[in-house]
Amino acid sequence: MLAIGMDVHSSKTTAYAVPLEESDLNMCAIAEDFNKSFRNFNSDRPGYAKVASFLEGIEHCILIENSTKSHEVFWIMSDLDLTVVVAHATDLFRITKSVKKTDQHDCYELAHYMRRRMLGEFEFAECLMVDRRWMDRRQLCRAYAWESEMLSDTRRQIKSYMLLRGIRIENMTRDITSVSNLKALDLIADDTLSLLLTRARDFKNRILACEKAIRKEFSDDEMFALLFTVPGFGLITTAYIVSMVVDINRFRNDKAFAAYFGIVPAQRESANSAPRCPITRRGDETARKMILQSTFVHIKTDRDKLSPITQMYDRLIKRGIPHKKALTAAGNKMARMVFTILKNKEPYKF
């Protein structure tokens, strides 16, 4: 059996193979031939097809680092019946902390990471590689998040420009880009303000289009329907979290689920000391922010204080814990509650 490391770049891939058992002379010879043939080849389907042809009938496992190219490469190699594992790059310390930054060195280390993994050592976390449909769902939600962020920037620019020019409108609503506000601003707009108003309308139209597409895409998704019952979780947050989870059964427990979104304390132990640490912030940053924002909305809208999330947050605030830390702790509890809801397939009941 061969353990193979591949250092993948946009145009070229470097590969290196080692036998699982060094005493297997036949596999040693095959690995040597592989290394001569695939020291450097094109990162496209024909290039990986040659690798698949060479490895036909040979047991193998290929390790690549997670990157912007990894999904495309994973899909290609999976279609060619190659066995591929994708590792979180942050776990590959022999590469990230190495002073030797060459493609050959990296694929050599990847091959030995894979070999040790096959022999029972678990030095890195394996990435979930979703299929094209789930990736399209994620990208749709990310497109909405990007458009929403750009609209927020435009709102700030409009407000700043109005202050600079002393522009005021009567009965202005809180959202400066609401329909009524935009109509009022059109009457007094100069060239610069007109440009900002046009941008705001364009962003809002694209956001509405994204919302419509998301509703259609997740209309028959069971996890989406369950999570949408939680107060504070809106359309976009629910869709984005579901697109990151994909399969709730891949998480061991609620703690692992919270850790996936980086809402757990980091570990830093020395001798008999185990100090309190900030959260790990691992995983998808947008998903983590959405969970914390939804937790805040959940707390603010729970006027009767019936939710255990709200009760926990209030207890921490009364003890003098700062808002940000209390909200993070509540976000951890919220993530664990979300896991329970999705795992047991029972809607929110509190």
Rank of each mutant, 00 (worst) to 15 (best):
I279G: 06
L163F: 05
P347H: 05
I341G: 04
A52E: 08
S67W: 03
F38H: 02
E72R: 12
T102H: 07
D191C: 07
A209L: 12
K318I: 00
T68A: 09
L195Q: 11
W134I: 05
S70L: 06
G283N: 00
E269S: 13
K255M: 02
G47A: 09
P231W: 07
A52H: 09
R39L: 08
R215V: 06
C210P: 01
R252F: 02
K212V: 06
P19V: 10
T295H: 03
T328N: 02
T198W: 11
I30E: 09
P347R: 07
Y108L: 14
D81M: 12
K204Q: 14
S307P: 04
F224G: 01
S180I: 15
P46D: 05
H112V: 09
C277E: 14
N272S: 13
Q104Y: 06
R138V: 01
T102Q: 05
Y313C: 06
A89Y: 02
S11E: 13
I4K: 07
E109D: 08
I4T: 01
I321P: 00
T68C: 12
E56S: 14
K97N: 13
A31V: 09
R155E: 12
Q267M: 12
I263H: 02
N253W: 11
R165E: 14
A200C: 11
T286K: 12
R117Q: 09
M290F: 15
D221P: 00
L110I: 09
C28T: 10
L110Y: 02
F93M: 12
M290C: 13
A3W: 00
H105R: 09
S67K: 02
I158W: 00
K216T: 13
C127A: 10
K50P: 04
F261C: 01
T173L: 15
N35H: 09
T68E: 15
D221M: 05
V242D: 01
H71S: 12
A3D: 00
Y144N: 07
E123T: 15
A52V: 10
I76M: 14
R288P: 09
G120C: 10
H88T: 07
E59F: 11
E21F: 14
D106R: 05
H105L: 08
Y113D: 07
L185A: 12
E21M: 07
L55V: 05
A330C: 11
M223E: 06
I169F: 06
S307Y: 07
R174S: 11
E211D: 11
M77K: 09
R303M: 12
R336G: 02
D24V: 14
N35C: 04
K50A: 15
D190C: 00
S194T: 15
I4S: 03
K69L: 15
I176L: 11
T14Y: 10
M290G: 00
M334W: 10
F233E: 00
T102I: 11
I62G: 01
C277P: 01
H112S: 05
R142W: 07
G320C: 03
K204M: 13
H105T: 09
E109W: 04
V130L: 08
H9L: 09
F257K: 04
N26V: 13
F38K: 01
N42W: 00
F41Y: 11
L151Y: 03
T90F: 13
P46G: 04
